[in-house]
Amino acid sequence: MGECPDARLMAGGTDLLVRLRHAGADTKPPLILLSKIPELADIIMANGDLCIGSGASFSAIMAHTLVQDHAPMLAKAVGTIGGPAIRNMGTLGGNIITASPAGDSLSPLYVADAQVVLVSPGGTRKIKISEFINGPGKSDIRKDEILTQIRIPLDDGFQSHCFEKVGLRRSLAIAVASFCGRLRFDEDGTVAEARFAWGSVAPTVARSINAENALTGNRLDTKSIKKSVAEATASLSPINDIRASAHYRRTVAGALLKRFLENPQREKKHV
Protein backbone atom coordinates (compact mmCIF):
# COMPACT_ATOMS: atom_id res chain seq x y z
CA MET A 1 0.00 0.00 0.00
CA GLY A 2 2.92 2.24 0.74
CA GLU A 3 4.44 1.52 -2.64
CA CYS A 4 1.22 2.00 -4.51
CA PRO A 5 -0.78 4.81 -2.92
CA ASP A 6 -3.44 4.82 -5.65
CA ALA A 7 -4.29 1.19 -5.09
CA ARG A 8 -7.63 0.11 -3.66
CA LEU A 9 -8.00 -2.79 -1.29
CA MET A 10 -10.42 -5.38 -2.57
CA ALA A 11 -12.00 -8.03 -0.41
CA GLY A 12 -14.78 -9.91 -2.25
CA GLY A 13 -15.18 -7.20 -4.87
CA THR A 14 -18.96 -7.51 -4.94
CA ASP A 15 -19.39 -3.76 -4.38
CA LEU A 16 -16.07 -2.39 -5.60
CA LEU A 17 -16.02 -4.10 -8.99
CA VAL A 18 -19.55 -2.98 -9.77
CA ARG A 19 -18.57 0.59 -8.96
CA LEU A 20 -15.38 0.40 -11.00
CA ARG A 21 -17.27 -0.95 -14.00
CA HIS A 22 -18.13 2.55 -15.06
CA ALA A 23 -14.80 4.12 -14.30
CA GLY A 24 -12.90 5.02 -17.46
CA ALA A 25 -10.07 2.68 -18.42
CA ASP A 26 -7.57 5.40 -17.46
CA THR A 27 -9.03 5.92 -14.04
CA LYS A 28 -9.25 2.31 -12.87
CA PRO A 29 -7.02 1.97 -9.81
CA PRO A 30 -4.72 -0.97 -9.19
CA LEU A 31 -6.30 -3.48 -6.84
CA ILE A 32 -4.70 -5.22 -3.87
CA LEU A 33 -6.52 -8.49 -3.32
CA LEU A 34 -7.04 -9.28 0.34
CA SER A 35 -8.35 -12.70 -0.57
CA LYS A 36 -4.72 -13.77 -0.97
CA ILE A 37 -4.22 -13.47 2.81
CA PRO A 38 -5.84 -16.62 4.23
CA GLU A 39 -5.45 -15.51 7.86
CA LEU A 40 -7.98 -12.77 7.21
CA ALA A 41 -10.66 -15.40 6.77
CA ASP A 42 -10.21 -17.00 10.20
CA ILE A 43 -13.12 -17.36 12.58
CA ILE A 44 -11.94 -18.06 16.13
CA MET A 45 -12.63 -17.47 19.82
CA ALA A 46 -10.13 -15.26 21.59
CA ASN A 47 -10.24 -13.49 24.96
CA GLY A 48 -13.94 -14.16 25.29
CA ASP A 49 -14.71 -12.60 21.94
CA LEU A 50 -15.92 -14.20 18.77
CA CYS A 51 -13.31 -12.98 16.28
CA ILE A 52 -14.26 -12.98 12.61
CA GLY A 53 -11.59 -12.19 10.05
CA SER A 54 -12.50 -9.32 7.79
CA GLY A 55 -11.98 -11.59 4.77
CA ALA A 56 -14.39 -14.29 5.93
CA SER A 57 -17.05 -14.75 3.30
CA PHE A 58 -20.72 -14.55 4.15
CA SER A 59 -21.07 -18.20 3.18
CA ALA A 60 -18.31 -19.19 5.59
CA ILE A 61 -19.80 -17.07 8.37
CA MET A 62 -23.28 -18.55 7.89
CA ALA A 63 -21.96 -22.08 8.03
CA HIS A 64 -19.55 -21.66 10.95
CA THR A 65 -20.64 -23.31 14.19
CA LEU A 66 -19.00 -20.63 16.34
CA VAL A 67 -21.10 -18.00 14.62
CA GLN A 68 -24.22 -20.10 14.78
CA ASP A 69 -23.64 -20.69 18.51
CA HIS A 70 -22.57 -17.23 19.58
CA ALA A 71 -23.89 -14.81 17.01
CA PRO A 72 -26.94 -16.51 15.48
CA MET A 73 -28.48 -13.23 14.31
CA LEU A 74 -25.31 -12.42 12.39
CA ALA A 75 -25.51 -15.85 10.76
CA LYS A 76 -29.12 -15.18 9.87
CA ALA A 77 -28.43 -11.67 8.61
CA VAL A 78 -25.56 -12.57 6.32
CA GLY A 79 -27.75 -15.33 4.91
CA THR A 80 -30.06 -12.64 3.52
CA ILE A 81 -27.31 -10.89 1.59
CA GLY A 82 -27.51 -11.19 -2.20
CA GLY A 83 -27.61 -14.76 -3.40
CA PRO A 84 -25.27 -17.74 -3.04
CA ALA A 85 -22.70 -16.44 -5.56
CA ILE A 86 -22.46 -13.05 -3.86
CA ARG A 87 -22.28 -14.67 -0.43
CA ASN A 88 -19.39 -16.83 -1.62
CA MET A 89 -17.42 -13.75 -2.60
CA GLY A 90 -18.62 -10.97 -0.30
CA THR A 91 -16.97 -10.54 3.10
CA LEU A 92 -17.86 -9.11 6.45
CA GLY A 93 -14.98 -6.63 6.25
CA GLY A 94 -16.14 -5.49 2.83
CA ASN A 95 -19.68 -4.98 4.06
CA ILE A 96 -18.35 -2.78 6.89
CA ILE A 97 -16.04 -0.70 4.70
CA THR A 98 -18.80 -0.22 2.10
CA ALA A 99 -20.71 1.25 5.05
CA SER A 100 -24.06 1.20 3.35
CA PRO A 101 -27.00 1.86 5.65
CA ALA A 102 -28.47 -1.21 3.97
CA GLY A 103 -25.49 -3.45 4.81
CA ASP A 104 -27.35 -6.45 6.14
CA SER A 105 -24.51 -7.71 8.34
CA LEU A 106 -24.24 -4.46 10.22
CA SER A 107 -27.28 -4.31 12.50
CA PRO A 108 -26.32 -7.51 14.39
CA LEU A 109 -22.86 -6.03 14.89
CA TYR A 110 -24.36 -2.80 16.25
CA VAL A 111 -26.64 -4.69 18.59
CA ALA A 112 -23.72 -6.80 19.82
CA ASP A 113 -21.50 -3.74 20.31
CA ALA A 114 -18.90 -5.33 18.07
CA GLN A 115 -15.49 -3.78 17.58
CA VAL A 116 -13.40 -3.57 14.46
CA VAL A 117 -9.65 -4.13 14.55
CA LEU A 118 -7.57 -1.88 12.30
CA VAL A 119 -3.94 -2.56 11.56
CA SER A 120 -1.39 -0.16 10.11
CA PRO A 121 2.39 0.12 10.11
CA GLY A 122 1.92 2.35 13.13
CA GLY A 123 0.10 -0.28 15.18
CA THR A 124 -3.30 -1.70 15.93
CA ARG A 125 -6.42 0.03 17.15
CA LYS A 126 -9.87 -1.18 18.10
CA ILE A 127 -13.02 0.84 17.71
CA LYS A 128 -16.72 0.22 18.19
CA ILE A 129 -18.61 -0.39 14.96
CA SER A 130 -21.06 2.40 15.71
CA GLU A 131 -18.17 4.84 16.07
CA PHE A 132 -16.29 3.49 13.08
CA ILE A 133 -19.06 3.98 10.53
CA ASN A 134 -20.03 7.62 10.33
CA GLY A 135 -22.16 8.07 7.22
CA PRO A 136 -23.33 6.39 4.06
CA GLY A 137 -20.17 4.98 2.49
CA LYS A 138 -18.06 6.67 5.15
CA SER A 139 -15.93 5.17 7.87
CA ASP A 140 -13.09 6.19 10.08
CA ILE A 141 -10.52 4.04 8.27
CA ARG A 142 -7.22 5.76 7.61
CA LYS A 143 -5.29 5.61 4.40
CA ASP A 144 -2.66 3.21 5.72
CA GLU A 145 -5.02 0.91 7.64
CA ILE A 146 -6.47 -2.48 6.92
CA LEU A 147 -9.56 -3.75 8.68
CA THR A 148 -8.43 -7.17 9.84
CA GLN A 149 -10.95 -8.46 12.31
CA ILE A 150 -14.37 -8.00 13.84
CA ARG A 151 -14.63 -8.81 17.53
CA ILE A 152 -18.01 -9.69 18.91
CA PRO A 153 -18.20 -9.76 22.72
CA LEU A 154 -19.91 -12.84 24.03
CA ASP A 155 -22.86 -11.79 26.04
CA ASP A 156 -25.15 -14.67 26.68
CA GLY A 157 -27.40 -12.89 29.09
CA PHE A 158 -29.88 -12.04 26.33
CA GLN A 159 -32.73 -14.48 26.04
CA SER A 160 -34.43 -13.14 22.92
CA HIS A 161 -33.02 -12.37 19.51
CA CYS A 162 -34.39 -11.38 16.18
CA PHE A 163 -33.24 -10.43 12.73
CA GLU A 164 -35.72 -9.67 9.98
CA LYS A 165 -35.26 -8.06 6.60
CA VAL A 166 -37.89 -6.74 4.22
CA GLY A 167 -36.74 -6.35 0.64
CA LEU A 168 -38.57 -6.10 -2.65
CA ARG A 169 -37.85 -9.74 -3.33
CA ARG A 170 -36.54 -12.73 -1.44
CA SER A 171 -32.99 -12.80 -2.74
CA LEU A 172 -30.63 -10.36 -4.42
CA ALA A 173 -32.49 -7.49 -2.84
CA ILE A 174 -31.36 -4.43 -0.97
CA ALA A 175 -33.26 -4.07 2.28
CA VAL A 176 -36.16 -1.65 2.33
CA ALA A 177 -35.86 -1.98 6.09
CA SER A 178 -34.19 -4.50 8.33
CA PHE A 179 -34.25 -4.96 12.08
CA CYS A 180 -32.10 -6.69 14.63
CA GLY A 181 -33.07 -6.85 18.28
CA ARG A 182 -32.17 -8.57 21.49
CA LEU A 183 -33.77 -8.54 24.91
CA ARG A 184 -32.56 -9.50 28.37
CA PHE A 185 -35.22 -10.18 30.95
CA ASP A 186 -35.00 -10.19 34.71
CA GLU A 187 -36.37 -13.16 36.52
CA ASP A 188 -39.61 -11.33 37.23
CA GLY A 189 -40.15 -10.87 33.49
CA THR A 190 -39.31 -7.21 33.25
CA VAL A 191 -36.94 -6.08 30.57
CA ALA A 192 -33.46 -5.61 31.95
CA GLU A 193 -31.89 -4.50 28.70
CA ALA A 194 -33.02 -3.98 25.16
CA ARG A 195 -30.91 -3.33 22.09
CA PHE A 196 -32.37 -2.54 18.70
CA ALA A 197 -30.81 -1.60 15.38
CA TRP A 198 -32.33 -0.95 11.99
CA GLY A 199 -30.91 -0.98 8.50
CA SER A 200 -31.98 1.20 5.54
CA VAL A 201 -33.88 3.75 7.62
CA ALA A 202 -31.16 6.29 8.39
CA PRO A 203 -27.79 7.43 6.95
CA THR A 204 -26.14 4.62 8.90
CA VAL A 205 -27.48 1.59 10.69
CA ALA A 206 -29.42 3.18 13.54
CA ARG A 207 -29.90 2.31 17.20
CA SER A 208 -32.76 3.92 19.07
CA ILE A 209 -31.82 4.47 22.67
CA ASN A 210 -35.24 5.96 23.39
CA ALA A 211 -37.01 2.89 22.08
CA GLU A 212 -34.73 0.70 24.18
CA ASN A 213 -35.18 2.81 27.32
CA ALA A 214 -38.93 2.76 26.89
CA LEU A 215 -38.82 -0.91 27.78
CA THR A 216 -36.12 -1.09 30.41
CA GLY A 217 -37.64 -1.90 33.78
CA ASN A 218 -41.02 -2.60 32.22
CA ARG A 219 -42.86 -5.71 31.25
CA LEU A 220 -43.66 -6.20 27.59
CA ASP A 221 -47.27 -5.13 27.43
CA THR A 222 -49.42 -3.18 25.01
CA LYS A 223 -48.49 0.10 26.59
CA SER A 224 -44.72 -0.35 26.76
CA ILE A 225 -44.61 -1.86 23.27
CA LYS A 226 -46.59 1.03 21.85
CA LYS A 227 -44.28 3.53 23.51
CA SER A 228 -41.17 1.77 22.31
CA VAL A 229 -42.44 1.52 18.72
CA ALA A 230 -43.43 5.19 18.74
CA GLU A 231 -39.98 6.19 20.01
CA ALA A 232 -38.34 4.05 17.38
CA THR A 233 -40.27 5.38 14.42
CA ALA A 234 -39.78 8.94 15.62
CA SER A 235 -36.03 8.49 15.87
CA LEU A 236 -35.47 7.07 12.38
CA SER A 237 -34.78 9.22 9.34
CA PRO A 238 -35.45 7.16 6.23
CA ILE A 239 -35.37 8.51 2.67
CA ASN A 240 -37.57 8.16 -0.41
CA ASP A 241 -35.98 6.30 -3.29
CA ILE A 242 -36.98 4.04 -6.17
CA ARG A 243 -37.38 1.12 -3.80
CA ALA A 244 -39.69 2.61 -1.21
CA SER A 245 -41.01 5.77 0.34
CA ALA A 246 -39.69 7.07 3.63
CA HIS A 247 -43.15 6.54 5.08
CA TYR A 248 -43.18 2.85 4.19
CA ARG A 249 -39.67 2.30 5.51
CA ARG A 250 -40.60 3.93 8.81
CA THR A 251 -43.81 1.93 9.05
CA VAL A 252 -42.02 -1.34 8.38
CA ALA A 253 -39.23 -0.49 10.81
CA GLY A 254 -41.83 0.00 13.53
CA ALA A 255 -43.76 -3.09 12.48
CA LEU A 256 -40.69 -5.31 12.70
CA LEU A 257 -39.93 -4.07 16.21
CA LYS A 258 -43.56 -4.55 17.21
CA ARG A 259 -43.61 -8.07 15.83
CA PHE A 260 -40.49 -8.92 17.84
CA LEU A 261 -41.81 -7.44 21.05
CA GLU A 262 -45.19 -9.12 20.74
CA ASN A 263 -43.63 -12.50 20.30
CA PRO A 264 -40.07 -12.37 21.60
CA GLN A 265 -39.63 -16.16 21.60
CA ARG A 266 -37.63 -16.18 24.80
CA GLU A 267 -34.94 -18.77 24.96
CA LYS A 268 -33.17 -19.91 28.08
CA LYS A 269 -29.91 -19.38 26.38
CA HIS A 270 -29.52 -18.39 22.82
CA VAL A 271 -28.38 -21.08 20.47
Partner: peptide, 27 residues
Amino acid sequence: MMEDFQIREGKPLTKDFTGYLIPGSLD
Protein backbone atom coordinates in the same frame (compact mmCIF):
# COMPACT_ATOMS: atom_id res chain seq x y z
CA MET B 1 -45.58 -7.81 -8.05
CA MET B 2 -42.36 -5.96 -8.72
CA GLU B 3 -41.40 -5.10 -12.28
CA ASP B 4 -41.72 -1.37 -12.69
CA PHE B 5 -39.52 0.47 -15.15
CA GLN B 6 -39.51 3.91 -13.58
CA ILE B 7 -38.84 6.99 -15.65
CA ARG B 8 -38.40 10.59 -14.53
CA GLU B 9 -38.38 13.30 -17.16
CA GLY B 10 -37.65 10.71 -19.81
CA LYS B 11 -34.70 9.18 -17.98
CA PRO B 12 -34.80 5.70 -16.50
CA LEU B 13 -34.54 5.60 -12.72
CA THR B 14 -34.27 1.85 -12.87
CA LYS B 15 -31.06 1.75 -14.84
CA ASP B 16 -29.97 -1.82 -14.33
CA PHE B 17 -30.90 -5.02 -12.51
CA THR B 18 -30.16 -3.43 -9.14
CA GLY B 19 -33.03 -1.03 -9.57
CA TYR B 20 -35.21 -3.00 -11.96
CA LEU B 21 -36.17 -6.17 -10.15
CA ILE B 22 -37.39 -9.36 -11.72
CA PRO B 23 -38.45 -12.32 -9.60
CA GLY B 24 -35.97 -14.95 -8.50
CA SER B 25 -36.65 -18.58 -7.78
CA LEU B 26 -37.54 -17.84 -4.15
CA ASP B 27 -40.26 -15.41 -5.22
